[in-house]
Simulated assay, not measured.
Amino acid sequence: MAFSHHLLFLALLLLFLPLSLSSSAGTIYSCKSNFTNNDALQADIDRVVSDLVAGTQQNLYAKSAFGAVYGHAMCRGDVSQENCSTCMAEAAHMVRQDCHDSADSSIWSENVYCFLHYGTSNFSGTANTTYVTGFRTSGTGNPAAFDVAARQLMIWVNAMAVFSSNKFGTSFTMFESDQKIYGMALCTPDLSGSACEECLGVAMRTVVSMCAGFKGCAYIFQSCMVRYDTYVFTSNVATLPQCPFCEAATTAASVPAPSGQ
Results as ranks from 00 to 15, higher is better:
D98P: 11
S102A: 08
D104L: 09
A65D: 11
C114R: 01
Y70D: 06
Y113A: 13
C114S: 02
D104M: 07
Y113T: 14
L116K: 06
H72G: 13
L116M: 12
Q81G: 12
A91Y: 02
I107F: 02
A91R: 03
V69M: 01
M88S: 08
V79E: 03
G119C: 03
A68R: 13
A73Q: 03
A68I: 09
Y113L: 14
D78I: 04
S80G: 09
S85H: 11
F115L: 12
A89N: 13
S121G: 12
S109V: 06
G77D: 09
A73W: 04
N83R: 11
A68C: 08
V79G: 03
N83K: 12
S106G: 10
D98V: 14
T120S: 04
T120I: 07
Y118R: 01
Y70Q: 07
A73M: 03
S85L: 10
S105G: 05
C99F: 05
A65K: 11
G77P: 06
E90A: 15
N83V: 10
H72T: 13
F115H: 11
A68T: 10
I107K: 01
L116Y: 08
E110H: 14
A92R: 00
S102M: 00
H117K: 09
N83I: 10
C84D: 03
V95K: 04
C114A: 04
G119P: 02
S80K: 06
V112P: 08
S102D: 07
D78H: 03
W108D: 02
A65L: 10
S80D: 08
A92H: 03
I107V: 07
M88H: 06
G67D: 00
Y70F: 11
C75E: 05
S105D: 01
S121Y: 14
C75L: 04
H72E: 14
E82R: 14
V79P: 05
F66G: 06
H72S: 14
Y113S: 14
E90W: 12
S106K: 10
A103R: 05
G77A: 09
L116V: 11
M88Q: 08
D104P: 09
H117F: 10
S80L: 07
A73I: 06
G119Y: 01
V112Y: 12
S102G: 04
W108A: 05
Q97I: 10
S121K: 14
R96K: 13
W108H: 05
M74T: 07
T86A: 11
F66S: 09
V69N: 04
G119T: 02
V69E: 00
R76D: 08
H100Y: 14
E90Q: 15
S106V: 09
Y70T: 07
E90H: 13
R76E: 09
V79H: 02
G71A: 01
S105N: 05
S102F: 05
T86K: 13
V112R: 12
S102N: 08
G119N: 01
N111H: 09
Q81S: 13
S105F: 00
H100A: 15
C87Q: 05
C99P: 04
Q97F: 11
F66I: 08
H117T: 08
H72L: 15
